[in-house]
Design a protein around this nucleic acid. Structure first.
Length: 555
RNA sequence: UGGGGUGUAGCCAAGUGGUAAGGCAACGGGUUUUGAUCCCGUCAUUCGCAGGUUCGAUCCCUGCCACCCCAGCCA
């Protein structure tokens, strides 16, 4: 492994800060709102926040941004903790919640009111919307803007005491209704919500807004680098305004980076939630989603996700990462770590006419071609076998070096066979092949120097285990599902295919691997969530034959 | 048309006043009883465009163009 020579712009800023002041601490935070499950975009943020701190012996808080009780719940809190841990990060004792600071936020709001920097506005939401102006027209002051601090103080306290109903009034920062930055046109600081909060229950009926709570939480925790995505760039002046006006002891610095976009997939909690509610996918952990729990269930190793985050980098550029990058990380990780097995996804029966009925041979099969230390297993070989249907073609193109009528192919770890006869059903579909084997070509014996182009996998029909296997493809037909009106119309109808596969007999053993490669088919894992025994295809192998076929089709 | 950002290959991404890293993809070849893995090689005379400064500009200056974000009592 060569060392990375280049650092992203955030790490460069931090390096520079440390160069200028060696006492400079690195304190970061990962601050999800517990209103959904984490996805790959969060993984990017987690890797950045935890990574940057770890590199400088700093610390990272896991902070739940729970300022909106109507959208949040304990299930999401637990899932987030689980996912962060699974990715391999440890927040130690630094587990906090925005709600831990509700009292401090309240006091900070009081101080703003006392400084005449905040006021209670009793306008309706519609009135506030209109008076805010537009992108090109300045807003106008609210009639409540000039209320005395005394009066504001009194009403705000009564807001807290629950004297008013939801939506009746808000506390606003008094900044500048004519600011070209919309966020500075007297943004809301507190709103009234008579709603059970998952942690503070009914202790509060007023809740702070994101900009206020986030800036102050960062300041209270001594966060030095508050790393967030680009859409908050316009919020930075407001963030800084709160920190300054509340006169916190510590001043955090917000730095923004671009969010992750992965082609043919969705990284938006809201849109994921829609798909789940409509039943388009099975839940947050559907293996077709790039949620952390979905990818985990699919069989993606955490280290592959970490590797992915490292490869995509951190910049301020809009980006769309190709699916291949993620898949490649998964293959790369699994290639060296998973044992090989054989399994036939779409079986085609093969009968060896010259192999004795009732005879069984046990043939040696390597568990990993590159690592002999991983040992061998015995595979039973009989007169009746299954091969992959796609490994036989009646009208084979020139470069197809698998089985065809009259052609020969090697059965991996076994013999070379020749296809003598093709049996079809009344629909003309091939249902069985009658073949003959060449006894001198047994693997490892060196009796024959016969060479064939192709080697295919197989299982003994008598010994194979029928098992459910789930084959996944990308969830969407289009690269940018996030940008279309009708997401459901862009769903790939073939994103999940369930097949009855025939697996080699070793899967009956107690210590059969949970994650493995089915040779020539891809990487698979046992699905821990389904009730019956079922396997997920994690990712296919790279397939240059498929590429050749596709090219032939296009030309 | 206000404000804030971003433009380096098909996709990511370094770089910086001295002649364009790296990864993925693609392509060509080698090894191979997985059309896998692995190995070797090819792949930007040019950095959104146009001017200017300079011996020299992707980098500095000016103008233009394209794309993204912002008008929640969401985060």
């Amino acid at each position: 492994m060569s060392e990375d020579l280049s650092k992203d712009f955030i790490r460069q800023i931090i390096d520079q800060d440390i160069l200028e002041d060696s006492s400079c601490q690195v304190v970061t935070r990962f601050p999800p709102e517990p209103n959904g499950f984490l996805h790959l975009g969060h993984a990017k943020s987690i890797c950045l926040n935890f990574g940057v701190a770890a590199e400088k012996n700093g610390i990272t808080f896991l902070r739940f941004d729970d300022t909106n009780p109507t959208k949040e719940n304990e299930i999401f809190v637990e899932s987030i903790k689980k996912d962060v841990t699974w990715l391999g990060f440890d927040w130690g004792k630094k587990l906090t919640h925005a709600s831990d600071y509700f009292e401090q936020f309240y006091l900070a709001a009081i101080s703003l009111i006392e400084k005449n920097l905040a006021y209670v506005d009793e306008s309706t939401p519609e009135e506030i919307k209109i008076s805010r102006g537009t992108l090109t027209k300045p807003g106008i002051d609210s009639p409540f803007r000039s209320r005395s601090a005394q009066e504001n103080l009194d009403i705000f306290k009564r807001m807290r005491n629950g004297e008013f109903s939801d939506g009746k009034m808000i506390l606003r920062a008094k900044i500048d209704m004519a600011s070209p930055n919309m966020n500075l046109r007297d943004p809301a600081i507190y709103r009234i919500r008579h709603y059970q909060h998952q942690r503070t229950a009914d202790k509060w009926c007023i809740y702070p807004m994101y900009d206020f709570a986030h800036a102050l939480s960062d300041a209270f925790e001594g966060i030095t680098y508050s790393l967030c995505t680009l859409e908050f760039e316009d919020h930075r002046p407001l963030y800084n305004w709160f920190v300054k006006q509340v006169e916190t002891q510590h001043c955090p610095r917000q730095i923004e980076f671009s969010r992750l976009n992965l082609a043919y997939s969705l990284t938006s909690k809201r849109k994921l939630n829609d798909l789940i509610e409509k039943g388009v996918v099975d839940g947050w952990d559907d293996p077709r989603l790039v949620t952390i729990s979905g990818m985990k269930r699919r069989g993606y190793p955490a280290s592959a996700i970490l590797d992915f985050c490292k490869r995509i980098g951190v910049t301020k550029k809009d980006n769309i990462i190709e699916m291949g990058v993620l898949e490649n990380c998964v293959r790369k990780n699994l290639g060296d770590t998973s044992e090989r097995r054989m399994g036939v996804l779409k079986p085609l029966k093969v009968t060896l006419s010259n192999y004795d009925e009732g005879q069984v041979e046990y043939l040696d099969a390597q568990n990993h071609p590159n690592f002999p230390d991983l040992g061998i297993r015995k595979m039973p070989f009989c007169r009746e076998l299954y091969i992959e249907s796609s490994d036989f073609l009646e009208d084979a193109p020139r470069k197809f070096f698998r089985l065809k009528p009259g052609g020969e192919v090697r059965l991996r770890y076994a013999y070379i066979i020749r296809c003598d006869e093709v049996i079809k059903n009344s629909n003309g579909e091939v249902i069985e092949l009658i073949c003959s084997y060449d006894v001198d070509t047994k693997s490892g014996t060196g009796k024959s120097d016969k060479k064939v182009k192709g080697t295919i996998h197989w299982v003994s029909a008598q010994h194979s285990i029928t098992s459910e296997v789930r084959l996944y493809d990308r969830l969407f037909k289009i690269p940018d599902p996030a940008n279309v009106d009708d997401i459901e119309a862009s769903i790939n109808p073939h994103s999940l295919e369930i097949v009855e596969a025939e697996l080699e007999s070793s899967f009956a053993e107690e210590n059969a691997p949970k994650v493995f490669q089915l040779e020539r088919n891809g990487y698979f894992c046992l699905d821990n969530m389904s009730e019956k025994k079922s396997f997920n295809r994690v990712v296919t192998l790279r397939d240059s034959w498929a590429k050749i076929e596709k090219q032939a089709l296009n030309s």
